[in-house]
Design a protein around this nucleic acid. Structure first.
Length: 351
DNA sequence: TACCCGTGGCG
DNA sequence: TCGCCAAGGGT
């Protein structure tokens, strides 16, 4: 009779972490205490976002707003501009609201329940802050940890359906000390060894104690839900120029690209009718349809935009809900990537 | 509960 | 080239 498979040893993971932990700008060095502000800021930026994409934004935010009081005192518009290009703009809105809430109450809450009540802070982020900044005995479960745990225990259901089980199993691994290190160790393991594709099981501190590895196909976990096709939408954007300036406006505060600057545009729709595009133009002008389209892929649809361009002689007219921005200052407007593509397509630079 | 919400890099 | 996917949260 075969011996029972080894159980995962959490202390082996901590030993691995002590050797292989990543040095990250928001992470305290070994033995030092993390700054709650830096932990919170980084955790918000890292939501669904890669480490490399976050690094320059984190540095810029920390340099400009070195503590939560400074961020709370900033105009929301400035925060949105500084966030431009990072995506998921509701995060920036919530970040600012959260900074004001924290400044108003005087300090970061330490309790997970209070953290959870903050805007933009969900179950993962609350647990991460509690564990990393305050050493609370909780395991934060992000996509990395879900993957590690799904493999360790060969969980057959997709992560979406198995959230509760994944959290319970992750928490069951907690060794009872070094909570911040343990959570970050699981995440580092998922990011560098137990990767979505091509996991390096031979380098894993759980080698020999992982059910997915024993199955012979660790990569098959976590089980993926069936993929659905991404629909296509279309629309048009209008680039109006006059006397060295371009016409822009601010999008509504919620929804797609909420609160971000844009060139006046039609709604983006599956049933967009190009013949009616000109009816959405911000002003009467000698509009010319440019050849080609701007293509962009969002989370849940892909977009093809027709670009219209026109030039008006000075003086520049006032146009409702819009403003003129000098071409040299377009960069400082904090255009989201889609609108940077529009600018480039219209020959305004911003490649 | 499902759906909504960006972006850039990688195999 | 293109689908996949990364430290999720809000509604």
């Amino acid at each position: 009779m075969r011996s029972a498979p080894a159980k995962p040893d959490p202390l082996a993971l901590l030993r691995w972490y002590d050797r292989r932990r990543r040095a990250l700008p928001w992470r305290a060095r070994a033995g030092e205490t993390a700054d709650p502000y830096a932990v919170w800021l980084s955790e918000i930026m890292l939501q669904q976002t890669t480490v490399e994409a976050v690094k320059p934004y984190f540095a810029a935010f920390l340099a400009r707003w070195p503590d939560v009081a400074a961020l709370a005192a900033a105009p929301q518009e400035e925060v949105m501009k500084a966030w431009a290009g990072l995506g998921y703009y509701a995060r920036a809105r919530n970040l600012h609201a959260c900074a004001r809430a924290i400044a108003a109450r005087g300090a970061f809450p330490r309790e997970q329940r209070e953290l959870l009540a903050l805007p933009g802070v969900g179950p993962y982020t609350a647990a991460a802050i509690a564990a990393i900044a305050y050493d609370a005995p909780v395991v934060a479960v992000d996509g990395n940890v879900e993957r590690v745990v799904a493999r360790l225990f060969a969980i057959e259901r997709p992560a979406r359906e198995a959230k509760a089980e994944l959290r319970e199993q992750a928490q069951s691994l907690f060794p009872g000390r070094r909570a911040g290190d343990f959570t970050q160790a699981l995440m580092d393991l998922g990011a560098t060894v137990c990767t979505p594709r091509g996991p390096r099981c031979g380098d894993c501190p759980f080698h020999g104690a992982c059910a997915a590895e024993r199955s012979g196909d660790a990569e098959a976990f976590p089980v993926k839900p069936p993929k659905t096709q991404k629909p296509e939408r279309r629309g048009a954007a209008f680039v109006l120029l006059s006397d060295g300036a371009a016409l822009i406006r601010t999008r509504p505060p919620r929804g797609l690209l909420g609160g971000m600057a844009e060139f006046p545009s039609t709604p983006f729709r599956a049933d967009f009718d190009p013949r009616k595009a000109r009816a959405h133009a911000p002003a009467a002008a000698p509009w010319r349809e440019l050849p080609g389209m701007v293509e962009h892929v969002f989370t849940h649809f892909s977009l093809r935009l027709t670009i219209f361009r026109a030039t008006l002689p000075p003086p520049r007219p006032g146009i409702e809900n819009c403003r003129w921005t000098e071409l040299g200052r377009l960069e400082a407007e904090g255009l989201p990537t889609l609108m940077r593509k529009v600018a480039a397509h219209a020959g305004l630079g911003l490649e």
